[in-house]
């Protein structure tokens, strides 16, 4: 188990190195950062000096090497635009994104799984049909449109929830949280629903189809034949057997939630990393872009690792135990 985790961590280093390499290669084509840094009246000579100072004249492989060496030490350079260390900027912005992502993931999980179980058990029920129809909306509407619709209804028409920003945030250690103030929580509701709705419908449909599959198995029939109660059969035996695919998808989706928070953060002007990344693209702020992409790759790698460990917890068949000899009958 420990060897497995170490092996996976080493693999993840390679993944992140490759992501950095690919990202850095792409950045050669996004435009000239100097144009964004200086005004029109700056002379050619000064531009050249600045270029030299930032090391932009070196071959990109040299630039990459320099970047990679620093990145390993946690130094992602100075943002061209903000003139501040990228690491600081990200640490400042990360809590907002992570809180938003976590809350939407929890929302999609705690609403999606019960809805999936319900629609799986009452396949032809009236409520199930409504859930299934509504879930089509969640799957097919683009995120930004859902966000705008929610703003229209709850902020413009009803005026009960704020349409942008993060509300009041308080510092807990170095982590700025919006979860402890009522304005922070209010501000979180709409973005979290927007971001989580797609995942919710995905999880619901996944749990439903897995439940339908599992309920047909022999061991469910045998569990019923032993007279176990409905709740034991449905939740203890059936739901637990649907968990492996659900964990996989939820894990992958959590990564996507963090990565695709960009759109939701833009719609709601949420002060997170996604919004910062989008602004960085507009300004050709290469250090921020590179750091952001590597960070997202890191999140994906960590989440995948956790997913793999959870498999072992849920499914005994994956636990390789050399001492357990197979019996013969």
């Amino acid at each position: 188990m420990v060897a497995f985790i170490i092996r996976r961590l080493l693999q993840s280093l390679i993944v992140m190195f490759v992501v950095a390499l690919v990202a850095f290669t792409l950045f050669q084509f996004v435009g000239d950062p100097i144009n964004q840094l200086v005004g029109v009246e700056t002379g050619l000579k000064e531009r050249e000096e600045l270029r030299q100072r930032l090391g932009l004249n070196d071959p990109w492989i040299v630039q990459f090497w320099r970047f990679a060496l620093n990145a390993v030490q946690g130094d992602f350079g100075i943002s061209y635009q903000h003139k501040r260390p990228v690491t600081d900027l990200i640490v400042n912005r990360m809590p907002a994104t992570l809180e938003l992502s976590l809350i939407s993931a929890l929302f999609s999980l705690f609403v999606g799984v019960p809805m999936g179980v319900y629609t799986g058990l009452n396949r032809n029920g009236f409520l199930s049909k409504i859930f299934m129809t509504v879930s089509l909306v969640g799957i097919s509407l683009p995120t930004f449109l859902i966000g705008i619709l929610l703003i229209f209804v709850f902020s413009v028409q009803l005026g009960v929830l704020p349409s942008f920003g993060r509300g009041e945030a308080v510092l807990v250690g170095s982590w700025s949280t919006g979860l402890l103030t009522s304005s922070g929580i209010k501000a979180l509701i709409l973005p979290a629903i927007t971001l989580g709705l797609f995942q919710l419908t995905l999880i619901m449909r996944l749990v439903r189809s897995e439940m339908l599959e599992v309920l047909r198995t022999d061991y469910i029939k045998f569990a019923r034949a032993r007279g176990l109660s409905n709740s034991a059969v449905h939740f203890g035996h059936a739901l637990k057997n649907t968990l492996v695919p659900v964990i996989t998808i939820t894990g992958l989706q959590l990564g996507s939630i963090i990565a695709f928070a960009i759109i939701t953060e833009t719609v709601f002007q949420w002060p997170g990393m996604g919004l910062m990344f989008l602004q960085a693209i507009q300004n050709v702020d290469i250090p921020i872009m590179a750091a952001y992409l590597i960070l997202i790759a890191f999140f994906f790698v960590v989440i995948n690792l956790i997913v793999d460990i959870l498999y072992y917890v849920v499914d005994p068949r994956l636990r390789i135990d050399p001492s357990a000899a197979h019996g013969h009958g």
């Binding site: 198995t217 022999d218 061991y219 029939k221 045998f222 569990a223 019923r224 034949a225 032993r226 007279g227 176990l228 109660s229 409905n230 035996h237 637990k240 057997n241 849920v314 499914d315 005994p316 068949r317």
Partner: peptide, 22 residues
């Protein structure tokens, strides 16, 4: 349900799939 198992038990064809793997 209270009769199943307690009064009338059942054994099915395929022992490989009759038991919950988890």
């Amino acid at each position: 349900r209270k009769i199943r198992g307690a009064e009338i038990g059942a054994i099915f064809q395929d022992p490989l799939t009759s038991l919950n793997p988890l």
